[in-house]
Amino acid sequence: MKPFRFTATINGRPVDLPVNPHRRLLDVIRDDLGLTGTKEGCGEGECGACTVLLNGRPVNACLVLAPEAAGCEITTIEGVAPEGGLHPIQEAFLEAGAVQCGYCTPGMILAAKALLDKDLSPTDQAIKTAVSGNLCRCTGYIKIIEAVRLAAAKLSGEGDAV
């Protein structure tokens, strides 16, 4: 087993580090890069707490072997907000009361971002589908769905109308 050279762009910054190939993208993000906003909930792709964007698509970082993500553009929750501020999706989650324990929240926000990056007027069904790989045991999802709807409105410049 020889280390693999892991080069990628994480949250807009280039990274280049040796990684043992049996490590998961999740381990690299959390342990090597210290980006602990990405959570591990189950380790087998069933909860979505470790959702990150890989070239804009949502994936479970626990199911991606680190070398498979080499060369990709990776976005974690730490890369969502602008410096010193909040992304409209994050704002919307706070405003809608979509956060309770907060453990699913980073993954939820990234799943929502994957949707809203492509579609700023999603139907409720599209919103529910977009977060259908993310477990939440606290909220009942209602306020999460509301938050994504609100974020869509904010992002399409109708924030105040909602």
């Binding site: 602990t36 974690t76 730490e78």
Partner: peptide
């Protein structure tokens, strides 16, 4: 009043430090 959660910002930013973090 529907005050926002006092721990909300850290949670949406992923900066809340859970024990495993």
């Amino acid at each position: 009043r529907n005050c926002r959660r006092v721990d909300g910002i850290a949670k949406v930013k992923g900066s809340a430090f859970f024990a495993a973090d």
